[in-house]
Simulated scan of single mutants.
Amino acid sequence: MPMEIVRIPVLSDNYVWLVHEPVSGETMVVDPAVAEPVLAEADRRRWRIGQIWNTHWHPDHTGGNAAIKAATGAIVTGPAAEAERIPTLDRTVREGDRVRLGEAEAQVLEVPAHTAGHIAYHFAEEEMLFIGDTLFAMGCGRLFEGSAAQMHANMTRLAALPAETRVYCAHEYTLSNGRFAVTAEPGNGDIAERLREVESLRASGEATVPTTIAAERATNPFMRASSVEALAALRAAKDNFRG
């Protein structure tokens, strides 16, 4: 039976992911910015949250940890490199570690650049990736604590994952990213077509994620960047983009 994944929009543009493994009945939440909508959705579905998985320390990814933990007794897992900045952590993980949700197993990938200890959770068998703020639909995270070289390495690594892999990022940034992407690659017809689709979805109030590795290979300028220098130039341009 496939895992059930619920997208919970919170704050201005965050997505919290509620993940249920039906064989065991176990449920976890990825990067809860706040607690109340997450607890309410789990209660509505009669799911009991047993775990919280954090990708990095930023408050809009960890702000709900304490309240969810208090309400459910959930075990909180997150990056070892950022343990001092996530006081609610019960378990720290690093590159190559394995974490389980019932019958499903994910591998921890270290993907620093947005923050120094940023991690992702890759369910290889289920072809799912919870990537936090490293990779977005048609974009990538800002380089707050890392380098363009690190982000370029991340993009190369993620591009090598199976094309069908579904990518669950933590923000609804696709419209802005798409508008930038068409300026970065004006001759890319795939980007132009995808932007039209995104504009239609957002006009209807619909979400644009999850995305897939295949879609990002074709339409994400950061994943398509040929060098560290090219990615650095794109990131600098995007940081100043007002589109």
Rank of each mutant, 00 (worst) to 15 (best):
T115A: 12
V108N: 02
T208S: 13
A104Y: 14
E185Q: 03
A207N: 06
A80K: 09
G96L: 06
L135T: 00
G139W: 08
P112H: 00
A106G: 08
P112E: 02
L201V: 01
R194A: 05
D190R: 14
E95R: 13
A70T: 04
I68C: 01
H122R: 10
L89M: 13
E185N: 03
L143G: 09
P162V: 10
E145D: 11
T88P: 07
E185W: 05
G205L: 15
C169H: 01
E145A: 10
T156D: 05
L201P: 01
R91C: 06
T88A: 14
R157C: 10
A113H: 09
A71I: 07
E105M: 05
T134I: 01
G117N: 10
M151W: 10
G139R: 03
A106L: 08
A113C: 09
R202D: 08
A203W: 04
A83G: 09
Y121F: 15
T165F: 12
A203T: 06
I131Q: 04
T72P: 09
E103S: 12
A71M: 02
E164D: 15
A81T: 09
L201D: 07
M128A: 12
F180Q: 04
D190L: 14
F123W: 15
A67W: 01
R166D: 08
M151G: 04
T72W: 09
A153H: 04
T77N: 03
T174C: 14
M138W: 08
P112N: 03
T183E: 14
E84D: 15
E103D: 08
A113P: 07
R196K: 13
E110I: 01
Q150G: 01
P112V: 03
G132K: 08
E84Q: 15
